[in-house]
Amino acid sequence: MQSVISVSGVSKTYATGFSALKNINLDIRRGEIFALLGPNGAGKTTLISIICGIVNRSGGTVTVDGHDISKDYRAARSLIGLVPQELTVESFETVSSVLAFSRGLFGKPANPAFIEKVLKDLSLWDKRDSKIITLSGGMKRRVMIGKALSHEPKILFLDEPTAGVDVELRKDMWALVRTLRESGVTIILTTHYIEEAEEMADRVGVINKGEIILVEEKAELMRKLGRKLLNLELRNPLTALPAGFETYNLELSPDGNKLTYTYDNQAERPGVASLIRDLDQAGIQFRDLDTENSSLEEIFVSLVRRQA
């Protein structure tokens, strides 16, 4: 698939000597929802800020829809809408005026009908003449999204869109993001909520300590997530896997006391019931059993820990 953003060899070292990004290579595909996961301080915001032109990179190149972000910054930036993490708004302006301002800033002709549509989509139409200072935090967040959408971006960055947002607004936001994706907008969101990535993303990238440590299809990750382990503690240790159990994905612990069955709990027939039946018939008894999940969260945590 065609990539709409291409980041290659990008690094960032701040004046303090802190190396925020190290040789980042990343391609964002046109029309996808890409979730960038990472703990706090991993470099998510720095990476986004570089792509959007807010922070200067120390090395490497970035192209947005084929436009170099330095040489051809106008073309590159006009395609991008950014919703930053912080709620930074002009307190004394009205909702509709800040949207109109953003649209103008990005060089688009005034279009009240479009602004009206954005405001309605964000349930802000009733508040269009309110000063932003009078709005709740959730509404300010919507205003930030509205500003980013006001100039009809082809690529939307959402930096921690649901940090400190209530469940309802989070659901609304997810729905909005899906609608945008259907209209052909590429969406890159950063989050440290794993469930958000699970819910929304087509692909997931994990960044830690300024390095991309994994980029994968979410479906693939979900397959890993779908893995479950059934641990059986045996009453009598076995020396080898009994015959007739080759079809099961079984593993015997070195001391022969534990059998581990790995299965897909999302499959039609996970095989747990038949395994236990077969074990019973073969006269293999167990004292205890437990199951465990390999969740995306675990994958994520182990990836991040391994690097530490």
């Binding site: 073309a75 950014l82 930053p84 708004v89 800033l105 990005f106």
Partner: peptide, 12 residues
């Protein structure tokens, strides 16, 4: 207030 981000990310 931080709204400078928009100016810096705009095609200006």
């Amino acid at each position: 207030v931080g709204t400078i981000f928009e100016l810096l990310s705009a095609p200006v």
